[in-house]
């Protein structure tokens, strides 16, 4: 694996370094909370540095993706390396937008960034092998499917970040990190994100089914990805119903959200392990 063969790599490494900066600063922010009476929060300057680091990371990853796209002549849709790097880019991008527009959830970066690092570490260990674009991928529904999927996964990540705070604050180590935050309201906010997750997951599945009908002549065939993504969708619906039917303790709710995030994660990144290709029709 040499840089001359894969000129996109240095840009990717630089992007990850920027994400590392954001991660370190996010932790620094909650450890050195500024106190105003009973209220505490990361300082404004700290929040700006975190956001700036994520934005720099996105710019560098955009260049990395652009260099690879230009070299191969097609977008990052085919192999695991491409899937990981494009998700690192979109999770960062959409999370940065949420971070910017919804200051109340900025503390979630201490959970969100480490979750992003699962992908960040993984991508460093796999061959950035060149991929070939299957003929059935030149379909406009692909864009809708991939786009909705990216929004779905990031909103799921944000909900997981808020759920993570609910769980983390009961640990002695992190007891002081989120002082003054209301668990009940963190829980409500996390579930509002889960509703957005249901909306975008549904849209992703619809666009995917239309594409599958065009590409492979069937809209649903229970392949690895389809089965796993249906389970994810159903579990979101079931979780919303459970919460509606029984009064859920926020910590159980938080564990449920993390489990759903885990399922979505396995759908995206686990399928290559138990299926020959992300989608059967690729072969």
């Amino acid at each position: 694996m040499s840089v001359t063969d894969f000129p996109e790599l240095p840009w990717m490494w630089a992007g990850l370094a920027a994400y590392m900066g954001a991660t370190v600063m996010a932790f620094r922010g909650v450890i050195t909370m500024e106190n105003i009476g009973a209220l505490s929060a990361p300082s404004r300057i700290n929040q700006q540095v975190v956001l700036a680091c994520i934005v720099i990371g996105i710019v560098l990853l955009t260049i990395s993706l652009g260099v690879r796209w230009d070299r191969l002549g097609h977008g990052p849709f085919v192999n695991l390396f491409e899937l990981l790097i494009s998700q690192l880019w979109s999770l960062g991008l959409i999370y940065a937008l949420v971070y910017w527009r919804v200051p109340a959830l900025r503390a979630s970066a201490v959970v969100v960034m480490p979750l992003i690092w699962i992908l960040g570490t993984w991508v460093l260990f796999i061959e950035p092998a060149d991929s070939r674009f299957p003929p059935t991928y030149s379909n406009n529904w692909l864009w809708a499917h991939v786009g909705f999927g990216k929004v779905f996964l990031t909103f799921c990540l944000v909900a997981a970040g808020l759920a993570g705070i609910i769980l983390l604050r009961s640990l002695p180590l992190a007891r002081d990190w989120f002082r003054g935050m209301s668990t009940e309201l963190l829980d409500q906010m996390a579930w509002r994100f889960m509703i957005l997750v249901l909306v975008f997951d549904s849209l992703m599945l619809i666009a995917g089914a239309v594409w599958a009908q065009d590409a492979w002549g069937r809209y649903w065939a229970w392949d690895a990805l389809e089965t796993s993504s249906f389970m994810t969708w159903l579990s979101i619906g079931a979780a919303i119903h459970v919460r509606m039917t029984y009064k859920l303790d926020p910590r159980i709710g938080a564990l449920t959200i993390l489990a759903i995030f885990g399922l979505a994660f396995v759908t995206y990144f686990g399928a290559p392990f138990y299926s020959q290709a992300a989608h059967k029709g690729v072969i």
Partner: peptide, 24 residues
């Protein structure tokens, strides 16, 4: 999110300068 009760708790003063944490 930070608890309305906390905000109005005794001893809480609201800074209005630019350095005030965003959540406050």
């Amino acid at each position: 999110l930070y608890g309305r009760d906390n905000v109005s708790a005794p001893g809480v003063t609201h800074k209005t300068d630019a350095d005030a944490p965003v959540q406050a």
